[in-house]
Design a binder for these strands. Structure first.
Lengths: 329, 329
DNA sequence: TTGTAAGCGTTATCAC
DNA sequence: GTGATAACGCTTACAA
């Protein structure tokens, strides 16, 4: 204790150890110092319960060892797991994560960026939808799943390739009448390519492919109406469906069940994401995103000192995994 | 721009606005200042793209408007949703969350606490398992789901009541041979009371109740063996199971399915948590934790200035929700 | 190798 | 109401 009620400072440690202030600082920065001095300092620090004040340190060094991660929410399993992996990747490097949730609001996204800047974070990783997010170029920014410009690195899965993979798989499994379904932000992003890859591949292989692309604002109703319109005599017009997310795949499956249409007996479905459900494994057959590598990549790039020579778009390979909604298990 | 490459400071704003440094500070702290001055300052700040440096501010004021949240991971839906709700509750109050993941490691938990202290957070909310976590009493700490001592507030659901509720419900639904299953940390915590409440209630109502309580280290194998040992001629010895989490409930259901035992036809199951799965609603019938209120409560307490008169344990009411694994829908 | 002193960007206390 | 000036706790030349 310092006598007054507040926390001990370096000055207190120095006094208690009987050394100069600078010496204490050196000890805590791993700068060579006489062994007996180091000893005394460490003991004094321990005795006083001293810890470096990162705020004072950051003020001097301009490095805070904090990175902000901006994401809509943690309700979607993919968002939660991505957040977890990025947080762990940061921790491994001695950085901390400031978590900022936006609930898809462009205004909130912007104010999160402001907050991050004000907190002098060393970098920002953002999964955002605001089409004209205003970024200070003084803080490194890495965008997840959305391409801004060549000067802002974007990290994503190989969404196009994943779509192709889904098409190939469904066709290989005997599907001939294919359908693509998605619901998501009306702001275009990398994930849109999932459907593009799927459709391109279907066409290339000579099979018809319909698609229904909705925006979040639309809600699920249109899906139900669409399916209802494509069921005749208890049979669905399609035998293979590719959904842009596993959650959507599960919702579609549940809706079809109400019509007595069973998966994978009557129609095979492939989703996208591949996050296992705790206690019950993969929710469906799916294109698996390489979450751990995506996280590592974001962190690597955002922390990279040398900001010239940054790639502007990095796509990581996905893979297919069977999960009970296709006839291959 | 300031001429040199770095960010503008208050000094720059003052110079550019032609006012004194202190005046600028006052403007940004909402301290009364002549209107024309305020105008000039705001304009200059805008022109320069100035933002208050929270690190410098924190150094002076000893308030960082940051709270650390320590949690094992975001894989368990309950953890993810709790994290989301706490983060939102903090954002609403103008605070940011520093997220620290521990993966259940006691050492990591301790180092997260150290990190938080070093970052001079205004408070710590912790979902931890380290039985002798060392806390500085200079930083407010709120424990989730685990009681430390009367001086450290603990927030939890009414786990005991939830267990009772599950028993009552199963009995009401006709179950007579009851079973309680749990897997979790070997460090005791509030969640242990789920089973206690269940067993107490079963006994009080005069129905037999078995239970199998495992630790994470044990893995799932013992559950499978237990169930196998209690299946005779394709029939399970129990007709009602209460699982300490929804994830476990789903795992048990899947295991029973392998034996041809169907839920809820042959046995009814109630889980605990009540986090809906994106795209498919509740995973099972369950005791729902009031996540939003739990989060609000944690944040309220951790930010409360007056630290005398804090309750040492707050239990929030749970409720039952049917989700397809009981015969009441 | 050790000690000294000048800031880092704010806030807060004073005279004016 | 406004404008110097001294901290806040630390890092980092630079001098000893």
């Amino acid at each position: 204790m310092t006598g007054n009620g507040s926390l001990p400072t370096m000055k207190d440690v120095a006094r208690s150890a009987g050394v100069a202030l600078g010496t204490v600082s050196k000890v805590f920065n791993n700068i060579p110092v006489g062994d007996s001095y180091r000893q005394r300092v460490l003991e004094a620090a321990d005795r006083l319960g001293y810890q470096v004040n990162n705020y004072a340190r950051g003020l001097k060094t301009n490095r805070t060892y904090a990175v902000a991660f901006i994401v809509p929410n943690l309700e979607l399993p993919f968002f939660a797991i991505l957040t977890q992996n990025i947080c762990q990747a940061l921790e491994r490097r001695g950085y901390r994560m400031i978590l900022a949730l936006t609930d898809f609001s462009p205004d909130t996204e912007q104010s999160c960026v402001r907050m991050a800047q004000q907190n002098k974070v060393d970098g920002i990783i953002g999964l955002t939808y605001n089409p004209n997010l205003h970024l200070k170029d003084s803080i490194p920014f890495v965008s997840f799943d959305r391409y801004f410009s060549s000067s802002i690195p974007c990290v994503a899965s190989d969404n196009f390739g994943g779509g192709q993979m889904a098409a190939e798989k469904l066709i290989e499994l005997g599907c001939r009448k294919l359908l693509f379904l998605r619901i998501g932000s009306s702001v275009s992003g990398e994930t849109d390519k999932r459907g593009d890859g799927f459709e391109v591949c279907c066409r290339a292989k000579g099979f018809p492919c319909d698609s229904l692309r909705l925006f979040n604002e639309d809600g699920y109703e249109p899906f139900k109406e669409f399916l209802a319109a494509h069921i005749h005599d208890g049979k669905l017009d399609y035998d293979g469906i590719f959904c842009a997310s596993d959650g959507l795949a599960m919702a579609i499956r549940a809706n079809l069940a109400e019509w007595g249409i069973l998966v994978p007996r009557d129609v095979q479905i492939i989703g996208f994401d591949g996050i296992p459900v705790w206690g019950s494994g993969l929710p469906c057959s799916t294109i698996v995103q390489p979450v751990a590598q995506l996280a590592e990549t974001c962190v690597d790039i955002v922390l990279k000192e040398d900001r010239t020579e940054q790639p502007s778009l990095i796509c990581l390979p996905v893979c297919y995994a069977s999960g009970g909604t296709t006839r291959d298990s």
